[in-house]
Design a binder for these strands. Structure first.
Lengths: 225, 225
DNA sequence: CCGTCATTCAATGTATTGATTGATTGATGA
DNA sequence: TCATCAATCAATCAATACATTGAATGACGG
């Protein structure tokens, strides 16, 4: 048994801390407290959170051991507890920024290169197929599909697309392909799909390019040599 | 306004991530996933979490962008998403351990100074009395009790204690007191109580010290001047 | 001692989260 | 095509978390 105890209480303790950080108000309060000792009312003003609510969130932070208090006259001053709290905050910030970056890149990419918005590369296709983010649509006639097609592709010939639209899941991006760069079937399909408000893109290479690549043609894993 | 926007959406995004980490089951699942790609059923076995529940927590992790999936035949394999996820987990672990250390030290302190464990200060007595955490036990003879006693105290003379043990609530800590530092009645009482497995401590000052303090003697609030 | 200020407590209604059950989807192989 | 297996979905109930309100506490200054 190489893994540590699965029911080790440390998991609950970590979860407690994480849950305490799991509310924007508390993060805002922590951020201000990290700049130096502050009283409750100052914190309400800096954060815009109602007084009693601020107090409750502060107590929550205190219970979790993230802040400490001392009294100064009528006021109660909050400060960060010791321990590597700022490390945790920094790591979380960093992870959140990483995620934002990724999203921003996606948007910029598609905005600045409109063909990218339409066409999808083989690499992106494979990657997002693995992530289960897209559904592949083969718009060639049924006979051609039967003779061979990309793994996982659904076959709806372009002239049946309008009426069979319901077969395509709404929550995924639809990637249409046909015979290759000169073939216009998939472009037609895109026009139909987009008119119906479906997120959709085109795999320009089509079936021929796929064949010449080293990837499997049918029914096998995407990731085998 | 020297502070960055208080309502910056990054706070919500960080909170999302933190909240996702705020459940022991998800932490356990993440830990296993971090060791390598795993299918849902494997994870249920490793973690002991029910199947549908495991699946739901995994989806939660996926929504928050902490894991990614790919399909392999019938199975769906989960792996860590990229980004500094392990940093966050490491930072949290480290903070939780820090907290454990501190608690352990506290315990050791009280262990190494057993008198601390036995005697209770006037301040702690008042505070925990307010919190309803303790029950006060006057072990002097009935006549002395009748002549004046600490507010809220129950009277059970020490020689009746064994047989009247049932009068004392099991869920509270019992604080025994008698005439003062030289008086051994409360020490005897402690021996009896502890032999019966009751959590108990001693208020060494006894009734005399209480009288000389500014606190009320009987039937009144603890907090009026 | 009394009134005031800063904070906390207590109580309430509402919203969210988590566990469980049984049904459903999707891929596989006979 | 059907039976099977892995995973997800959908619906439900119980438990928690949040925000808000008004009352209570604790320290201060007159």
């Amino acid at each position: 048994m190489k893994n540590a105890d699965v029911h080790h209480p440390i998991f609950d303790e970590i979860a407690d801390i994480a849950r305490t950080l799991g509310h924007a108000h508390r993060l805002v309060l922590l951020r201000h407290i990290a700049d130096g000792e502050l009283a409750v009312e100052q914190l309400t003003q800096l954060s815009g959170i109602a007084l009693a609510n601020t107090s409750q969130h502060l107590q929550h932070l205190k219970r979790a051991g993230l802040v400490q208090t001392r009294r100064d006259g009528k006021r109660v001053l909050y400060r960060l507890a010791d321990g590597p709290i700022e490390n945790v905050l920094a790591a979380l910030r960093s992870l959140a920024n990483h995620r934002r970056e990724q999203i921003r890149e996606l948007i910029n990419d598609t905005m600045s290169r409109p063909d990218r918005l339409e066409n999808i590369s083989r690499e992106e296709l494979v990657r997002r197929m693995r992530n289960d983010e897209i559904v592949l649509l083969d718009v060639r006639p049924q006979e051609e599909y039967a003779a061979g097609h990309l793994p996982g592709a659904i076959n709806i010939p372009v002239d049946e697309l309008e009426e069979r639209l319901a077969e395509l899941p709404r929550e995924k991006v639809i990637v249409a392909y046909c015979r290759g760069v000169q073939c216009v079937l998939s472009a037609d399909a895109l026009a139909i799909l987009r008119a119906r408000g479906r997120a959709s893109r085109r795999f320009e290479g089509g079936f021929p390019e796929w064949l010449t690549s080293s990837l499997d043609v049918d029914g096998m894993n995407y990731d085998s040599g």
